[in-house]
Structure formats: C-alpha cells, structure tokens
Design a protein around this nucleic acid. Structure first.
Length: 622
RNA sequence: CGGGGCGUGGCGCAGCCUGGUAGCGCACCUGACUGGGGGUCAGGAGGUCGCCGGUUCGAAUCCGGCCGCCCCGACCA
C-alpha cells in the first residue's frame, strides 16, 4: 500500500530504481547483456516522439513504405533519404544487437571507419575512376578530392595492412555499423532502395584461401542465423562476384513479391542464383542443315517480332542484334531472337564495369542500319555471340541495308565473333544445367551479401604479410554486408496485416504495449503493471494518452508491438489484465498475479519460434 | 536515362479548365459531454498555394523557365 502511494506521487522514479537494480543482477546472472543499450525506462506514449497517420501517405505504394510512414517510424527528407524516428531506431538497434551477438560468436570485432574519405585509397584501387556517379565526390577547402563512403573495402584494407605484418596475426576480422551513401539513379519503396543507409559491413583477412573459405562459411552461417533471429528465412543465392572484384559471392534474399531482384531457384533447392549470374540449359531447335545465305525484302519490318511474323517464322529462328556502348566502343551482341540479353553476363564477358544500350548516333557512326543491323560484313565493332547462335542454324538476321534481311545465316560460316559465350537471361521453365529440373523465378530483396575478395584490394594497396618461411604475400580478404534498414523493411513486408505491422518479438521496438483505458485508478494500475514488466526484463510502451479506446487500439495495431495488455476499470474489477497477442484474433483475461509470468512466457515463446539453428540450405558454397 | 503522374496547413484532398477575400476531412488547441475499436457538440489556431520570371488593374488559376517528389520502364535494332 505504501508502494502504491509512492507511485502515485512519483511513479517514474521508483520504477527506474527498480529497473537499475534488476538490470545489473540479471546481467550478472546470465553473463550477457540482456538490456541492449537501446533499452530505456518505460516509454509513455504521451511523451513519445511519434505521430501516427490516419490516412495513407499518397507517395507510398509498397506495404513497408506505407506502414513505416503511417506508424511514425520514418520521415523522408529527400529522395531515398530518411530520418529514423525513435520507433524505427529502436528496431534498428535491436537488429544491430542481434548481429553483434552473432559476430562475437565468430570472433569478429566491432569498430568504426570514417564516412568521408580522401580519394587517394580509391585512386590506388582504380575505383575512383571505375565507379560511376553513384559515388559522391567533392573537394574539401584545399581542393583535395574526397568521397562519401559507398562501401569500405579500401579503408578496411588499409587497416588490415597496418595491423597484419605477420601470418601470426591472421586470420582476423572486424565489422562496423556505418552510413553509406550511394547516389542511386532511382531510389524507391521507402527503406527498400535508399541513397543513405546504415550498413553492417565486415572484412576478413587471411594468410591463404583455405582460411578465407573457413571464415567465409562462418560468416554465411552467422548471417543466416542473424536473419532468422530477425524473422527472415533467407534464400542464399550465388551472385555476381565481379561486382566487388571477387572470386565468389553470395546474396541473402528475403523472398517477397515486393523485391526488385529476380532469383532463379530450382524446386528442390539445389540451385539458387541471382538472375545476373544464373545459367540454364538453352532450348535447342533443329533448323535443318545450313542453307545458302539469301537476301529477302522485309519492307518496314524493323523489330524481331515484325520480321518473324512477316516471314512466318518462330522467334528462335531469328538472330537478334542488340547494341551496347562500353564507354569507349560499341559492342554488337548477336543472340537468338527468343532470348534476352543479360547485361551482367555481357559486362563480364566484355570485361568492362559499365555498359548501356547504345544511342542511335553511335550506331550510325559505326555504319549500322538500325532495324536492319547485321553482324555480317561489320568491321571495327566488337561482336559478342551468344552460344545460342553458335548452336543454331539458318537464322534470319538484318542485311545492314534498309528494308532487307538475310536468311540462312550460320555461325561461324557467315561471320566471326570477337567473343562467344553465354550472355542470355534465364527464363522460367528453363532447365537446370546439371539436374534438368525446371527453374522458377522469384522476387527477392537483397538483405545481405558476402564476397570472397581474394587479393584484389590487398595487391592494389600493397597490403602484405610475412609468411612462416619469410616470404611476402598479399593478404587474402573477404567482405560481408547487411543492409539494416532494408532488413527492417523486409520484415515489415513479411509480417503485417491490414491493420499494421506485426513485429517478431526479437526486433519489435518494445516487447509489450500496455494500453491504459480510464481514470487515475486505472492509470496507477497500468503504471504499476508496466513497472513490474520492466523489472522482469521486458521493454514497455505505455499508452497513457487520454484518447479513446479505438484510437489507442488502432495505433497499437499499426505500430505492431507483438504483445498487448489492456488495463481498464473492467479488468481492475476482475483483478485481471486483458492480454492479446498482435497475431491473435481475440483477447483473454489473465489473473493479475499471473500477468508478468504469462507475458514473459509469451515473449520467450515468440523468440523461441525463430529457429536460428535450423539446417542451412546453401547451394554450392565452395 | 526514357515515359507518366504530382507539388495548395502535419496527413489526405478540392479549387485551376472559365483569373477576383484560399476551402474540405483528419490531425492540432480550448471547453463540455463521452469512455473497450479512429465518439459528439461548440469555439479556435495554423497556409510565401514548390521557386523564379512574364501577362494582367488583379495570378493557386494563364504563359515560360527551373527545382523537387512519386510511379513505371530501361533487349527496338
């Protein structure tokens, strides 16, 4: 009774003291940080820095974008630039905490590298030149070239070089949570594709590739565990290793229709790859024995579809010409008409970092007739031949003369390719190269990636170590990234309903949402309850506003804290508290003296439902 | 980069075509009532109509330029 009287006068003070004591003892007992540093004393909603919106913001089409805006989680400042408001920040910090725990499990240490870099390291690796306008460059007051960090390989390598002079100091790895700025041509979808974002990025350093392989696998497992603890079962897929000048790379995807990446998977899970690198058996068609080259009139027919229809042929009986500009030259891609060019594969085959479709003027300058382009008789143009053309006979191609095409074009009889290889996109239903399974396409959000960098950066930056035999070698490296905000947005895409977000217990901004409906007696009861919950180790958001029940319940659903308790005259009279999980349809009354234990259990069950230790399906991890 | 759409109070929008005191709903403030799913009534506060220039007696509205935001697309040869 005396406690109650004290609470009425100064509830916060008492609760804070109770918390401080409980915290240290719990931490000691369990030997770990139960309260991450994002934990604060019970948050009163009347004081929370948040505004929920009743109407949907018109700019948001994706679910996560819409709900994060409506719930008062984020606020846009410019295209792809967001403030993380307290609710979102707490989610971010909880995600970070999970990652910290997983990183410490594999002996990876946290540090922080700068966000603004002098350009010289980037010039040494060549990326100051090779990276496009997505890297922001500027001059400081002394006209020195500077860049905003879009990634940290150069800086990390520099640190590794400074640290590791001997094999005895290897392997070693470190990570950071740090802002990145990438001037994306098209930011979109709220937090899904932004320009400024927080990335967790890690870098590992090794004496040899075997050591890199070991650590790489450890990172992949740690990442899968971290994603699962956040509620996402990631698809681990092969990806474009050359993007970071590496030898092997994987991406971690949250499979959802909202994703903007396309993942190629086999139904049994033996194959999963990003569209950029995916391969498949190409359907082969029998077009008969090579026949004599013939010129035919095709007046006004400039597209493959028109030509095929005009000559009454299937698309696969045509040769499509697609032109790319490689920065200083034209590349003519000859591909079977039913296939599409995969630009990432083409980039690799050409060995250039950036390509784009060629402009009409560039075609004219090379003497190519748009609409009737032909690889036959072309000089001074790089001709890339997709292997689909190599394996076909009697194709129809342009004649490089207006209104004429050539039939019975055969490779290599009629023209020579500068490069021959696979530059086509996999299509749904294409067969897996080895197993012959039909492949499926799925949309995914890339929430993480891992790269075996090898010695690309260490060689460029002269980061070497001394081996046991006294010889000097470049350090072998790996890098590993997770987009924190994108991960949070992916979780919202995955966990929501019509009313709002439904956070997994592990990363919700608060563990419990206590809704107080009523006068001062109810307020006191809610305060005491919230204090008890906090003392038990749970974080609490207490809705103490003088709003109607409907407003409070709707806000609670929108914000999406997984467990909700309601205190009202009604529940006080019943010596109970109403409990409703966000995922449940109906609420139930819990006897007052069992509330804390019940909620603790519900929270623990919510965490336990996530299964970080389940087997990890990883296609071809080398 | 290409195409489309949109900039009017914190959010959602009308007004623009046909120039003449800047409006509505929600949110916000005050008071009363109400009190378990965005409640009712009364009274309020809040806007350089994205920016610059032009036309006009007069511009949110018409004209020109610029900026910003959203969405879609980026294999036509």
């Amino acid at each position: 009774m005396r406690l109650l009287a004290t609470l009425v006068h100064c509830p916060n003070l008492v609760i804070k003291q109770a918390n401080a004591t409980t915290r240290s003892s719990l931490s000691d007992t369990l030997g770990q940080q139960i309260f991450p540093d994002c934990s604060t004393p019970m948050q009163r909603m009347s004081r929370l820095f948040v505004r929920t919106l009743r109407d949907n913001p018109s700019e948001a089409t994706l679910v996560s974008h819409r709900l994060l805006l409506r719930g008062g989680y984020i606020r846009p400042l410019g295209a792809g630039i967001y403030s993380m408001l307290p609710l979102a920040w707490r989610v971010q910090r909880r995600i970070e905490q999970i990652i910290r725990e997983e990183m410490s499990q594999i002996d990876c240490q946290e540090l922080q590298m700068p966000f603004v870099h002098p350009s010289d390291l980037w010039e040494h690796t060549g990326r100051f030149e090779s990276v496009g306008p997505e890297m922001v460059r500027f001059q400081d007051r002394w006209d020195r070239d500077m860049v905003l960090a879009m990634t940290h390989e150069e800086i990390a390598t520099d640190l590794g070089k400074w640290f590791a002079s001997s094999y005895r100091q290897l392997p070693v790895s470190f990570y950071q949570f740090q802002s990145k700025f990438r001037d994306e041509p098209r930011p979109r979808g709220g937090l899904l594709r932004v320009r400024e974002f927080t990335m967790k990025d890690a870098y590992s350093f090794h004496p040899d590739f075997e050591s890199l392989d070991d650590t790489y696998n450890q990172f992949v497992e740690a990442y899968v565990r971290a994603f699962r603890r956040c509620g996402i079962e990631p698809a681990v897929v092969e990806s474009d290793a050359l993007a970071m000048s590496g030898s092997m790379a994987h991406e971690f995807h949250c499979l959802t229709p909202a994703g903007e990446d396309t993942i190629v998977v086999s139904p049994t899970g033996t194959y999963a790859a990003n569209m950029e690198v995916a391969t498949a058996r190409k359907p082969v068609f029998d077009h008969g024995a090579p026949a004599p080259l013939t010129k035919v009139a095709t007046p006004g027919k400039t597209t493959i579809e028109e030509v095929a229809a005009f000559l009454d042929l299937e698309l696969h009986q045509t040769l499509k010409a697609v032109f790319y500009w490689t920065g200083d030259a034209l590349a003519f891609v000859a591909i079977r008409g039913d296939l599409a060019v995969n630009e990432a594969k083409l980039r690799h085959l050409l060995g250039v970092p950036e390509i784009r479709l060629a402009a009409d003027q560039e075609l004219e300058a090379a003497g190519i007739v748009a609409g009737y382009a032909s690889p036959i008789g072309l000089d001074n143009v790089t001709i890339v031949v997709d292997d689909s053309v190599e394996s076909s006979t009697n194709l129809v191609a342009g004649a490089n003369t207006p209104n004429f095409h050539l039939t019975n074009v055969n490779y290599p009889r009629d023209f020579q390719g500068t490069l021959v290889g696979d530059v086509s996109q996999v299509r749904p239903g294409d067969l897996h190269v080895e197993s012959g399974e039909p492949l499926e396409l799925q949309a995914g959000i890339e929430i993480g990636n891992t790269f075996k960098l090898g010695t690309f950066y260490s060689e460029k930056l002269d980061a070497t170590f001394l081996a046991a035999d006294g010889s000097q070698h470049p350090i072998v490296m790996g890098s590993y990234g997770i987009g924190i905000g994108r991960l949070a947005a992916s979780v919202v895409e995955r966990y929501h309903d019509d009313d709002g977000i439904i956070w997994p217990s592990s990363i919700a901004p608060y563990d419990v949402h206590v809704v107080q409906l009523g006068d001062s007696a109810v307020a006191t009861g809610a305060d005491v309850l919230a204090g008890e919950l906090e003392a038990s180790g749970l974080s609490v958001l207490l809705d103490d506003r003088s709003e109607s029940a409907g407003v409070k319940f709707n806000d609670a659903d929108l914000i999406g804290i997984p467990l909700r308790l309601t205190v009202s005259k009604r529940t006080l009279a019943a010596e109970a508290v109403e409990f409703k999980a966000r995922t449940d349809e109906n609420a139930e009354n819990i006897p007052r003296d069992q509330v804390v234990a019940t909620i603790k259990k519900a929270h623990a069950d919510g965490i336990a439902a996530l299964t970080p230790d389940a087997p990890i399906p990883m296609p071809s991890l080398g």
